[in-house]
């Protein structure tokens, strides 16, 4: 029975692996095509290529280059979203951060206002926080449970390590809350978009918002998002307002 299951998993892995390899290859080739188009001055084509690459495999470098291409093509909203996504995947990329600052200074746009736990969440990529939390959780659980199971006395170092793991676990919880709330942050894609009072096409217009304006999607209704901006709130479609997390 066990052997049969192992065989099944191995077979599935063999099936999936070529698909993963194909996606990686597509991401690489589109990335190189984008770089070539960018250097050739065709920024719209470069943006399309980088978008294809990011669709095949989300990568910080791809998003950084996508932001550059969109900015050069004059599309402020998509450029800011791409750079934010680059920082989302790799917060240590200084180039994307500087580009964002430059774009916001130029377009007179504000950065999203982050709470303290959201700021903490920007220190490391989301995967790192998840792994740290998981490891610390199981370290604590193992150190507390396994000695009992195996009828060993808990040593002092085991208890100290468990305390350390528990501290680490508790410290990562605000970061997870930050990641969760930050995943609702998004940006307006085009300039002069009407902010709707209701989630309908013929809705009354509250005001107009500019490209690159940051906001938070508080709830969804069909293809519409209720977005809260710094001074106003209203409904935008998901094409008009895109989230960093891509959801």
């Amino acid at each position: 029975m066990n052997l049969w299951r192992l065989t099944l998993w191995g077979f599935l892995l063999l099936l999936v692996r070529p698909v993963l390899a194909d996606r990686q290859e597509l991401a690489e080739s589109s990335f190189q095509a984008g770089v070539a188009a960018y250097r050739g001055g065709d920024f719209s084509a470069a943006a399309r290529a980088f978008e294809n690459s990011a669709g095949a495999r989300a990568a910080a470098g791809t998003y950084q280059n996508l932001g550059n291409a969109e900015w050069q093509a004059g599309r402020v909203g998509p450029a800011i979203l791409a750079w934010e996504r680059a920082l989302w995947l790799a917060p240590a990329i200084t180039e994307a951060r500087e580009n964002l600052q430059l774009a916001r200074d130029t377009a007179q746009l504000a950065a999203p206002e982050l709470t303290w736990y959201e700021v903490i969440s920007t220190w490391l990529p989301s995967g790192w926080w998840a792994i740290i939390t998981a490891l610390s959780l199981w370290l604590v659980a193992d150190l507390l449970v396994l000695p009992g199971i195996f009828r060993r006395r808990r040593a002092g170092w085991q208890q100290a390590l468990a305390a350390l793991g528990l501290t680490l676990l508790l410290l990562t919880l605000p970061a997870h809350a930050g990641w969760h709330t930050r995943s609702n942050i998004g940006f307006v894609m085009e300039g002069n978009l009407p902010l709707r009072l209701t989630p309908t096409e013929q809705a009354q217009e509250i005001t107009r918002v500019g490209a690159g304006e940051p906001g938070r999607c508080e709830r969804r209704y069909g293809n519409y998002c209720f977005v809260r901006f710094r001074n106003t709130a209203g409904w935008l479609t998901r094409e008009e307002f895109k989230l960093i997390s891509g959801r």
């Binding site: 495999r57 990568a59 470098g61 989302w88 995947l89 580009n99 430059l102 990529p125 989301s126 926080w129």
Partner: peptide
Amino acid sequence: KRSLSGLAPTLGTTAGSLVPLQERGWF
């Protein structure tokens, strides 16, 4: 003089999805 940075030479840090790891079902 402030100007746009150059292009990233490689894909850099990659991820299967932009959705945070802790919010993915398989994790």
